[in-house]
């Protein structure tokens, strides 16, 4: 990692955002964007998260595709529940899922996925036991939710952020 480029991925993201906002790739914008992409991470060097290594692009792609499918599927489920289920038939519950994921970045991504998926909201993560408290809109089978979250989301995130072979 070079001294004047403390976070290459953040810099690249800033450049892409700058070009997308301006909707052009003419040299002027590329240069201005590149300057911003180098200067901003240096200003915020003090609060940049410590080196996060990301591995396995294939697992990332698979995780993104899987989450998208799951989001669309839950969207239809939640819509159907709102429209056609009697109010007192809804079994909304708090559940706890014991997590093995420890990486803060991985947990952040997991919270984004869980909260973006309709029907589940992250309540809190118990700091000492790493039990995740969730609220589920319509709970049928607690064990199914636990297995789904652990295999579909947590396992890929562990591989991506912690690099443990399975």
């Amino acid at each position: 990692m070079m001294r004047w480029l403390p976070a290459p991925r953040l810099s690249l993201a800033l450049l892409v955002i700058w070009l997308l906002v301006n909707q052009s790739i003419d040299p002027g914008n590329v240069i201005l964007g590149a300057v911003l992409a180098i200067v901003i991470p240096n200003w915020f060097r003090a609060i940049l998260p410590v080196d996060v290594t990301i591995r396995r692009p294939l697992v990332i792609a698979h995780l993104i595709a899987g989450s998208l499918v799951e989001i669309i599927r839950s969207c239809f489920n939640v819509s159907m529940l709102i429209l056609f289920t009697r109010r007192d038939r809804l079994n909304s519950q708090f559940i706890t899922v014991p997590l093995d994921l420890r990486s803060p970045s991985g947990l952040a991504v997991l919270s984004c996925i869980i909260n973006t998926t309709p029907g589940t909201v992250w309540v809190e993560l118990l700091p000492d036991t790493y039990d995740l408290a969730l609220h589920v809109f319509d709970l049928h089978d607690e064990q199914w939710w636990i297995d789904t979250i652990k295999t579909r989301y947590e396992q890929p995130l562990i591989e991506i952020f912690e690099g443990v072979k399975t």
């Binding site: 989001i71 969207c75 709102i82 109010r87 809804l90 973006t116 998926t117 309709p118 609220h135």
Partner: peptide, 23 residues
């Protein structure tokens, strides 16, 4: 929006806007 209006308690209502912001 309908869910936000009609669901009976807070913890259920919080799920309704999620479908609006995603899909």
């Amino acid at each position: 929006g309908l869910g936000l209006l009609r669901l009976p308690n807070f913890y259920q209502r919080i799920h309704a806007p999620a479908i609006a912001i995603t899909f």
